[in-house]
Design a protein around this nucleic acid. Sequence first.
DNA 1: GGCTGATAGTTAGGGAGCTAACTATTTTAT
DNA 2: ATAAAATAGTTAGCTCCCTAACTATCAGCC
Lengths: 169, 169
Amino acid sequence: MLKDLPRYECLLEAAEQHPELEPSAIESYMNLLRTADLVFSEQRRFMDRISLSQGRFTVLMLLNRCCEEGGARTPAELAEQAGVTRATMTGLIDTLEKDGLVQREADPADRRALNVRLTPQGEAFVNGFLPDWFRQVASIMAPLGEKERKQLVGLLQKLQASLSGVEPE
Amino acid sequence: MLKDLPRYECLLEAAEQHPELEPSAIESYMNLLRTADLVFSEQRRFMDRISLSQGRFTVLMLLNRCCEEGGARTPAELAEQAGVTRATMTGLIDTLEKDGLVQREADPADRRALNVRLTPQGEAFVNGFLPDWFRQVASIMAPLGEKERKQLVGLLQKLQASLSGVEPE
DNA sequence: GGCTGATAGTTAGGGAGCTAACTATTTTAT
DNA sequence: ATAAAATAGTTAGCTCCCTAACTATCAGCC
């Protein structure tokens, strides 16, 4: 989004002409997007380093999901949980399979369906980068103490709650 | 990113195997990205309604920048401030110009340079959607009171500060 | 049993942004 | 004064993700 945010004084000034403009709303909105963008850039730098796109990274994380059971999933479930379309998931699995990190298996019960699972190489690969990723996340969040993190999560969840109950427009 | 976040219990469990994993860091990290993603989806829905992409929207906002002076900018400045490459800016200006919203003008002092400015139609267009956009932002941020917004901005800026001072790695 | 409609996955084509390479100017240094 | 380096903008080709249309299979109903 906007890389350099408007100064607050400008917002105040603009608010005089626009009664709909709430300076504090714009300010927090912009800061939220800006921060997320910075965080996301770091995330992308991390993924570049291990030659993964956002989508591939997410698929590997989902397939590795610690507390989940077997570790096999259908493309449709993966797409749903990764927040991409099934068409996109096809492509993601294609390249991950080509790289030998995951494999497709026919579902014996439903001949339309597939199961995707990490190969041993895929598992090794994920376990190879996970500690680094955890460290990166910890380092990004390092400026905030435990209490501040809880505070942040609380504020964000308020926003999420109102956003996921999609407004009828 | 991950559309459904891991539950906190899972993080705690995983942290047992991975000493680098700070559950509260992952939790706040995920919530930040997730919230931004939701906000961004709303933003995109808004822009879809007025047939603008993120980039085009940003360019128009920059050219309209309330408290700035003349309202003419070079593509390079726009690219810098919009956070895209100059190559991307070329394309954005192309389509905006094709739609009659902006125009390129030769710079008399430097024959390499151009100035981009809103056409009267462009200005009218921006002023047409601005109030709606202000209302949308206000509605998204409505769950937070003034004090909470300040709190949020404060927390986000702490993160920004440490993120923009790019870590030498 | 055999349509009708839903569902799983894929393919084809498009939009947005990126990098790298290119042209035309301007600036700097010799 | 001129050769070298820097800068403004553009073009070409890539990746990622999307939507829409398609194939194959399954489920429900007559």
